[in-house]
């Protein structure tokens, strides 16, 4: 934990952060809105007090309520991993600006998040499916996507389809969609 870093973040991004800076173990976590991602990341990358040159990971998360895009960054200015969560993307049409202008290497990670969650990264020039076949319709890592094994504890028990892109018709969404409101 790096309290000084927390203070630096709070001063610099006052008004942008969606919540308090959260620290646990060796991780510092900030939440921003999808509209602020570009500006925040550019500031973190360029400004000499931060110098986050190193994008460690880009991933999508479906909390069951909203979509998130989670970035992990590393810099030699702090001993912590920095986690930037772009929070509050709508599940119907999740959109977030692409990081490819800053880190071209994020292209594939964004493609993966698009493939798995359907998150549109605006500005990524090669946003197509990367794992699933091009004619695939569903987004497999979304929480309302069904694996057959799920059937064991869901109202869809006994339905032996290989894949279902939607919950069974008679299912109650509050039971079938696993949510984590705190995530």
């Amino acid at each position: 934990m790096d309290p000084a870093f927390k203070r630096r973040l709070e001063t610099r991004f006052r008004g942008v952060l969606l919540g308090p800076v959260h620290q646990r173990h060796d991780e510092t976590e900030i939440r921003v809105g999808p509209g602020d991602v570009s500006a925040v990341m550019r500031a973190l990358h360029d400004e000499p007090t931060f110098r986050f040159e190193f994008l460690s990971d880009v991933c999508g998360v479906d909390t069951g309520v909203v979509m998130q895009v989670v970035y992990h960054l590393w810099s030699e200015t702090t001993a912590d991993w920095l986690r930037v969560i772009a929070d509050g993307l709508s599940r119907d049409d999740p959109r977030v600006p692409s990081l490819t202008p800053l880190w071209p290497g994020a292209e594939w990670m964004e493609r993966e998040a698009y493939d798995m969650f359907g998150i549109t990264f605006e500005g990524n020039r090669d946003l197509r499916r990367i794992y699933m076949p091009p004619d695939y319709m569903a987004f497999p890592l979304r929480k309302d996507f069904y694996l057959p094994d799920d059937a064991a504890r869901s109202p869809g028990a006994g339905v032996r389809h290989v894949e279902q892109s939607h919950a069974p018709v008679n299912a109650d969404p509050s039971v079938t969609v696993r949510t984590a409101r705190g995530a």
Partner: peptide, 27 residues
């Protein structure tokens, strides 16, 4: 790296697996 979200159950809510091979292949 792995990013893990727990929702208090016995199964992780989300486990993100980041493999450098994937990124290297992108380059």
């Amino acid at each position: 790296t792995m990013y893990m979200i727990s929702d208090g159950t016995d199964q992780p809510f989300r486990l993100r697996i980041h493999d450098p091979s994937f990124v290297h292949l992108g380059s």
